[in-house]
């Protein structure tokens, strides 16, 4: 169930719209981390926030838009217990219309079978709370809380 934002806080929300490509994502992450509300978090929570946002945005670029480009909209606002994040894109739906499970690939494989990917959703699920996904009118919307 999506959370209802806490309107009583005085810290302004941050809304950014940018291209879903690795360079624009890097630049936008830098701006998000340096601005309220994320700039007010402690070092550990900011690190977690950067990682969750990067993983989700990289997925949008790579999977929702198949590296063909498109825009993504990020809204961050303070909420009870952390920062409420919304990420919207107009790319392809999640597989089967739902969030990936995020099962960790095996780390005990022989050298040449060690995993080089498949870590993203596990990291996302480990570092955020109240994660929800909706697909509506051709748009993907992810909502989650970064504790902090």
């Amino acid at each position: 169930m999506p959370r209802v934002p806490d309107q009583t806080s005085g810290t302004p929300e941050l809304r950014l719209v940018f291209g879903a490509d690795p360079v624009a994502i890097r630049r936008s992450l830098s701006r998000m981390l340096a601005s309220p509300p994320l700039s007010g978090l402690g070092a550990e929570a900011r690190g977690a926030a950067e990682l969750v946002l990067a993983e989700i945005l990289n997925n949008v670029a790579e999977h929702a838009y198949d590296e063909a480009g498109g825009t993504v909209e990020v809204t961050l606002r303070p909420d009870a217990g952390g920062i409420l994040c919304q990420i919207a894109d107009s790319g392809r739906s999640m597989p089967d219309g739902r969030l990936p499970e995020g099962k960790l690939p095996a780390s005990s494989a022989p050298l040449q079978d060690l995993p080089e990917g498949g870590f993203g959703w596990h990291l996302i699920r480990s570092l955020c709370a109240d994660l929800s996904y909706t697909r509506s009118e051709g748009r993907n919307l992810l909502v989650f809380l970064i504790p902090g």
Binding site: A54, L111, L114, E116, G117, F119
Partner: peptide, 20 residues
């Protein structure tokens, strides 16, 4: 200061490239 899953995958790939 920052490593994402792509960066992690690249470090694992380097380990594999170096061979047994």
């Amino acid at each position: 200061q920052f490593l994402d899953s792509s960066g992690l995958g690249a470090i694992v790939a380097v380990k594999k490239l170096l061979g047994p």
